[in-house]
Design a protein around this nucleic acid. Structure first.
Lengths: 327, 327
DNA sequence: TTGTAAGCGTTATCAT
DNA sequence: ATGATAACGCTTACAA
């Protein structure tokens, strides 16, 4: 290609990369030649010479889960903008496989790593002294010297309750999932704090922990209706649970939202938008989380000092009919 | 590292790659040195020299959809086994972005490409004369000279009806989604063929096309119950639709499966396993599809001749309670 | 402004 | 069995 343009490879390189010290005429000649041969530079060779590959590794523990996906999209999106490519690796929740992938990524000379956990709880650090910066998303690293981005579950719980209180509800119950999840406790804590601030207790007296399923939502609701017949709002720890709650409330003849308002968590569109009535829910804004993680990583790669600790990103309440104002 | 072992880089390379013509003593010395320095070979340099990167591009049109995800998992899984890494690119359904990513992938010297569409219908070929093999998954390429892997929707529809007939049902209706989807027609065709074989017509006389939502499932079911009061089975074109069908049948006081058996499509666990009763459904085995696509691609990369045309992979019926045998 | 040459880290060829 | 050397395709001093 340089030959076709009758210049040296050095000049060709400068011309193609918009470097100074190339006469307009030469540049034009080079560009024309490149065009003619539909020349495309070999990024591998460039990486070798520059010592920078323009790639990052995305190490996820659980592609299956619906949570990693939006994060991954956000990250892919943000990195694509800086024409960085993403190596995707799924460790399937297996530490051995994770180490294996880590080695593969490092040998491929990625410029940085994003680690996306399967659960919102903290996870072991992938290692200190890695030759590239690392950002944890969704699951924070146990090591506070790492940088982690997570969504603010406590604030999310508070937002849900704030909303219910603003509707004038005062008998608010909370049905949530597996107590083994830190996020379940965080959301409950946020919710309880707001109730307390308002001088209220929890309808049903205690948080109903169970698992993250629709059927638990149904079962817990039946239990709740016995314990607190006058309940006028339910905050569910997930949209799946909320679906069960709606179902059981219908069954019991309660009208929604007139008799009981319901708020879910996750904003899982297929569930929340299609329920009857459509479900008000807390959105974790995971795509934004992924995007932010990518931005933080890019900054670290470009040498700006790597921040540390856990950064909490806000949730957003999405209002639908299950908590509509009734006249 | 070669210096530490007091050998030349050539010998070190042979030792590390289990090449012959290295004395056991030397090999041991090299391995020890590598260990001490926790040496990890630079895959970028190796790629440059070998002309092969051990990477493939995964070009998806719609990361958002739940369908690309299992395919992606399967592909990632199969490729990981051959220690091939995957570049993930999401075109977001935008042709421009797709071309952009394609260029980026080629300049990164990927050894092959997997193209995953957003819908089960055919899509434009990504281009002829690419320097690397390409396999299409889920969305077949419009160009029959490309290799595409898709699931056999027609057979899937047939499987659903076969199952219902085997339960002794004879008044079978079909409620499905957007008629703009070829897959909707394929499934309907498979279902109708089997009914015809059994000398039966469709309950409700015609396929009820609408959209892929729960609310359409509800609406269509109400319609259906007017038109064909004696319906004893419904085959739904998706699990979301099936959820709506279940809902409306409950509302109408029909018992499931005693009065009406229901079969869905997709085996979307969160919906199907948690519905009341749990939903029998057709699984597209997308993970297997992704895996198969990766295998085909690997074969093509390794020089075995690239097959062409559309390869159909079978679906699998997952039986749950919505079509249980009633005594 | 342009060209020459070294270097990036590996593998492969071919002497020794 | 080992090592010197070229090659992979690019960037970048530095020399012309």
């Amino acid at each position: 290609m340089a030959r076709l343009a009758e210049v040296s490879t050095a000049t060709a390189s400068k011309a193609l990369n918009d470097r100074p010290d190339v006469s307009p005429a030469t540049r034009a000649r080079v560009l024309a030649a490149a065009e003619r041969l539909s020349f495309s530079p070999n990024a591998v060779a460039r990486s070798l010479s520059e010592g920078r590959t323009g790639t990052v590794g995305l190490l996820t523990s659980d592609l299956e889960g619906r949570f990693s996906l939006p994060i991954l999209m956000g990250a892919e999106d943000a990195l694509g903008a800086s024409s960085t490519s993403v190596f995707l690796c799924d460790a399937r929740g297996d530490a051995i496989r994770e180490q294996h992938h880590l080695r593969a990524l490092l040998s491929r000379q990625v410029d940085g790593l994003i680690v996306v956990g399967a659960r919102p709880d903290s996870r072991p650090s992938i290692g200190r002294d890695l030759p590239v910066p690392v950002v944890y998303a969704y699951s924070p690293s146990e090591d506070p010297r790492d940088l982690s981005l997570v969504c603010d579950n406590t604030a999310g719980g508070a937002q849900a309750v704030d909303h219910l209180l603003s509707l004038g509800r005062s008998r608010v119950a909370h049905i949530t999932g597996d107590p083994g999840y830190g996020a379940a406790h965080d959301r409950a804590r946020g919710a309880l704090a707001r109730l307390e601030d308002a001088g209220l207790g929890l309808a049903g007296d205690e948080v109903l922990f169970g698992d993250w399923t629709e059927s638990w939502g149904r079962g817990a609701t039946r239990l709740l209706l016995q314990r607190a017949h006058d309940v006028d709002a339910v905050f569910a720890g997930s949209d799946q649970i909320a679906r069960g709650v709606l179902d059981a409330l219908h069954e019991a003849g309660r009208r929604i939202p007139r008799d009981v308002a319901v708020v879910g968590f996750d904003n899982w569109e297929a569930l929340a938008a299609e329920s009857r009535p459509a479900l008000t829910t807390v959105d974790m804004q995971l795509e934004a989380l992924g995007r932010r993680a990518a931005e933080r990583l890019s900054a670290a790669i470009d040498g700006r000092r790597q921040a540390t600790g856990v950064e909490q990103l806000p949730c957003r309440l999405v209002q639908r009919h299950s908590s509509a104002v009734v006249d």
